[in-house]
Structure formats: C-alpha cells, structure tokens
C-alpha cells in the first residue's frame, strides 16, 4: 500500500505533537517506534481517521482522508486500541458480528459464519459467548484484532496492542499478528516490542519529539542506526534486555 503523508501538523492545547511530518512509501508492514509522548500514537490515529490534523494530508493508495468523508474512510481500515477497545456490553462474538452487519452490510448468518471461522482459526471459539470482562488480556486483544480484520480492511492499524499485557499474552498477540502478516495483511503497528519491529516488520519509522527522525527498512535501521536520537533510544531500551 502506498502511503503519502504530507506536511502533517498536530497540536493539543497549544502543544505541538506532530511537527511537519512527511512520509511517502509503498509498505506492507510498518512499525512505528519511539519514546512515549513523542507523537507516535497521534500519528497512527490521524492515519486511522480518528483525529483530524491541523494541517496536512494523508493518502492511502487512492483513499484520501477528508473530514466530511471520515466515516467512509474509517470503514475501510481496521484499528486495534491498546486496551478497552472491545464493546463491554457485547459478547466476543457480537463484537465481531455487529460491525460486519451494521457497517459492512453483511447478512447476519454470513457475519456469524465469518466470525466463528476466524475465532476457530485462532483458538478462541470457546470464548465466543463471553463478555470482555470475563476474558484475559490476551484474549481481549486477539479478539479485538479479529474484529478489526473480519471485514478484510485495506490496512490494519495497531496502537501498542501489547503494552498492557504480560509477556505470555504479549507473545500470543504478536504471534497472531505475525500469522496475519503471512496471510498478506498490510498493517502499521505502533509498538515498544523492538524484536517484533525488527523481525516481523519490513519498514520502520522512528518518531521523536514530534518529528520523524529516522525511517527506512527496519533491518537496516536496527543494524545501523544513523541519528544520535535513535542510537540513544536503542541504547536505553536494550539496557535491561538480553
């Protein structure tokens, strides 16, 4: 998918969160890394059409984000929140089928078949009638991902999907995303899991202090970080890692 981000600016309460961000690339799997508060989640949410930038534009292939066409834009994408994204008053199954029926005009039986198929594939079929409060963190996030891809969106966006999970659930979720990658699903993931960014993502963006400081192929960047900011970031992250 060809992403074109031009002159993107964003402020919250007079604080600059994104400063003249530009990015143009044909991507399959993109990881966005950086320290908290640097602007990565904001960038993702703007790409997802959840936030409107102060200025600038976002184009995904032929799909341009326009405020008056926002709903249509969002419908073609899938989004996964860090937590709390599943509808708490619906079962796992209903979380997946409801958007299919109400947003993508699926027939209810069709929707159920699709949902159950996906749940079975990822070993979550037994949990289909449980409410989010009854599921583990890992199960919730995996179901959130299923909900996001059930309608076969053009692009899947994940905002730190594992940051609130313990290592075992983190692995569960990352394995699922990897499986999707092998299926050919295109995604952008904001994450602190540098190992995943390196091994499973082709492209990488490093955001720091509201700017894209470095970007390129992730293997190259990890092997040879060029900017001092990235070098500094990596050094800190790897301090307690093996």
């Amino acid at each position: 998918m060809q992403i074109n981000i031009k002159n993107l600016n964003m402020t919250f309460d007079d604080q600059i969160v994104l400063d003249n961000v530009n990015y143009s690339q044909d991507i399959k799997t993109l990881a966005i890394i950086g320290s908290s508060g640097g602007g990565k989640s904001t960038l993702l949410r703007i790409v997802a059409g959840l936030l409107t930038p102060i200025s600038g534009s976002v184009k995904l292939d032929d799909l341009t984000f326009e405020k008056n066409n926002a709903v249509n834009y969002r419908r073609q994408l899938g989004y996964v929140f860090q937590n709390g994204g599943l509808f708490s008053h619906m079962t796992a199954l209903k979380n997946i089928t409801m958007p299919l029926i109400k947003v993508h005009d699926y027939d209810p039986k069709e929707a159920e078949k699709t949902a159950e198929g996906l749940l079975k594939r990822f070993n979550l079929y037994e949990e289909r009638n449980k409410y989010p409060a009854e599921l583990s963190g890992g199960e919730r996030q995996r179901i959130a991902i299923i909900r996001a891809i059930a309608s076969k969106p053009r692009l899947l966006l994940l905002d730190e999907p594992t940051s609130a999970l313990d290592p075992i659930y983190t692995n569960e979720v990352l394995n699922l995303v990897n499986e999707l990658r092998e299926d050919g699903v295109h995604f952008i993931i904001v994450t602190h899991e540098l190992g995943f960014a390196k091994k499973a993502c082709e492209d990488l963006i490093f955001v720091d202090n509201s700017k894209i400081v470095e970007c390129g192929k992730s293997k190259d960047i990890f092997a040879n970080p060029k900017t001092p900011e990235l070098k500094n970031f990596l050094a800190h992250v790897l301090e307690w890692n093996a």
Partner: peptide, 21 residues
C-alpha cells in the same frame, strides 16, 4: 468510557449508530 465511543468510531459506526448500539 470514552474509549468505547472511540472504538465505535474506529469500527466505522456513524454518530447515530454509535448512540444506538
């Protein structure tokens, strides 16, 4: 929870659909 409303947005629901569902 405001995240629930944002999730409704992300999933592609319109404002009235969000209210209803």
């Amino acid at each position: 929870d405001s995240t629930q409303i944002e999730a409704a947005k992300a999933v592609g629901l319109t404002k009235s659909q969000t209210l209803k569902y």
